[in-house]
Design a protein around this nucleic acid. Structure first.
Lengths: 154, 154
DNA sequence: CGGCATTAGTTTGAGGTCAAACAATTTAAC
DNA sequence: GTTAAATTGTTTGACCTCAAACTAATGCCG
């Protein structure tokens, strides 16, 4: 009748990277569920937010900011443009680039999404005391800032 | 000469979820680089570790433990089996399931990988004082433990 | 026992992601 | 100023992931 032998994590037990991956999956799961009615993923939300905060930015700038390959961004923007949330406008000064802007519909939707995302963050982190939330944010930022100096060969 | 206007993060600025995603990307990047000579991804490493720690487990058990869809696991195990690192052995007691085990080569490789992963963790978290690393692990675990109680409709 | 729901592994299809190759444009070098 | 190098957006191909449908086997329930 023992239904949960519950596997051993073995070596994974002590790895912060593994813990972070699990947290990421839980987070994505809740986000996805909350945004399902709008068909918005974390990546799409990030793109909308950054375009909103930096109107006129280029696809390369956006791609770097959300850590997405520029080729991946093409389909994502196609999608958002098809939904009339975003507009690609050829730059007058550099004909290689597009200037990205939210449409009025895009701004309207983003407003709703922001409220949902706040609720999502509250669900996922609201149980933690404020100082621990701040600590978590600080530590995560420190990890992101770590750059690989040098890679060991074979 | 200002080469870095450096976009505003806007609404993303205050989101722990966004910070966590950036940390995850940085982590994955360093991991991937360190393991490139062995063609091992975090997911593959996780699978090898769990099989090592729980010899004879089934594909479903493994899939749940590493949060992977069972259909995804099929190709992953095909790959590891083709490399003679893992063995699928049909269970005698339940003919639906396979018992998973590492081969001697698998155990040998995993040993090397563990050392690399330790170096990787040291690179990414080593700069943090030990108590902060522990705190980070604890907080991440708390986030993973958050289960969506209920989802708001439209 | 006998039939039906459940479970395990697999296959297939849709979508997200990166890397490499390409054309158009801009920048740098001479 | 002309030519070579770098940059931007795009397309294509490979891979990973999930979800749904399928098959074989087990468990349940009368």
């Amino acid at each position: 009748m023992n239904k949960k032998p519950s596997l051993s994590l073995g070596f994974l037990e002590g790895l912060i990277g593994f813990r972070l991956r699990l947290a990421q999956i839980a987070l994505f799961d809740d986000f996805e569920r909350a945004m399902r009615p709008f068909d918005i993923t974390p990546t799409r939300f990030g793109a909308l937010s950054l375009i909103d905060a930096n109107p006129g930015l280029s696809q390369m700038q956006l791609a770097k900011a959300i850590r997405l390959d520029r080729s991946t961004l093409v389909a994502l923007l196609d999608h958002l443009e098809k939904r009339s949330l975003v507009q690609r406008r050829p730059s007058a000064t550099d004909k290689r680039t597009n200037e990205l802007r939210l449409t009025p519909e895009g701004r309207l939707l983003l407003g709703k999404l922001k409220r949902r995302v706040q609720e999502h963050e509250k669900r996922m982190f609201g149980k933690l005391p404020a100082d621990e939330r701040a600590q978590l944010a600080r530590l995560l930022e420190a990890v992101s800032a770590m750059k690989t100096k040098q890679v060991i060969e074979i």
